[in-house]
């Protein structure tokens, strides 16, 4: 098969995701399978590429949350077609425990970050919204997570973020688990003050920060 042809399948998948077109994405995914395109590559170079481009438009303030959500719906629809045909699960970049801190039921930002993590190759455990601090630490222990990602939109719940770091420090897990925070009222200064390892201003940046944190950790361990 010529490379050019393969690239065209990827491009169609990527464009369909970027254009928020669920049906077109499903058709493109089926089309790729029918023409013996490797499903793993179709996900990486097609669907994920579309989400990455959508993330870029979000950073450029051309796309906003509704657009990004519709892109992710298209991406997941394509994923449903391709996933059953994966030979073996691709190498995961790491495990992320994510949730909205107790007292806050705003989970739009958290859901966006989850989507970007998943498309970025992370295994994500989503604890949902209104999560007590201890549960983050317990789940990180059970799942051998690399990262705890905390989000809040409310200043009233920011204390809970510090509590998670504190609980983690008191446990034996601190060396292996990075904490990253984000959300409306959070600033890099606040992240530093509570002892978090990373801060991201939005979902697209969160996945970049997570990759850096995991990579830095691997270097540190080597």
């Amino acid at each position: 098969m010529a490379d050019k042809e393969q690239a065209e399948y990827f491009k169609e998948l990527s464009d369909a995701v970027l254009d928020m077109d669920e049906e077109r994405t499903v058709t493109a995914a089926q089309d790729a399978l029918d023409n013996s395109i490797d499903p793993y590559e179709a996900i990486q170079n097609g669907l994920s590429d579309g989400m990455a481009r959508a993330g870029q438009l979000f950073e450029d303030e051309e796309y906003f949350i509704p657009e990004l959500l519709m892109c992710s719906d298209a991406m997941y629809a394509g994923l449903d077609v391709l996933k059953p045909h994966l030979k073996a699960t691709g190498e995961s970049r790491g495990t992320v425990v994510i949730g909205v801190i107790e007292g806050d039921t705003h989970d739009i930002g958290k859901n966006m970050v989850r989507i970007m993590f998943e498309t970025g190759g992370f295994h994500v455990i989503d604890l949902g919204r209104d999560v007590p601090p201890q549960r983050f630490v317990d789940t990180a222990r059970e799942s051998k997570a690399d990262i705890i990602a905390l989000s809040t939109l409310m200043t009233t719940t920011m204390d809970g973020m510090g509590t998670v770091v504190k609980l983690l420090n008191e446990s034996d897990l601190r060396a292996g688990v990075k904490v990253m925070v984000g959300g409306g009222p959070i600033s890099p200064g606040f992240a530093k003050r509570i002892g978090a390892d990373g801060y991201a201003v939005n979902a697209a940046e969160a996945v970049k920060v997570a990759r850096e944190l995991v990579a830095r950790d691997a270097v540190g361990a080597a």
Partner: peptide
């Protein structure tokens, strides 16, 4: 449900 609501503002 807010996630659905936000999408439906467009869809």
């Amino acid at each position: 449900s807010p996630m659905q609501f936000l999408k439906e503002l467009r869809k």
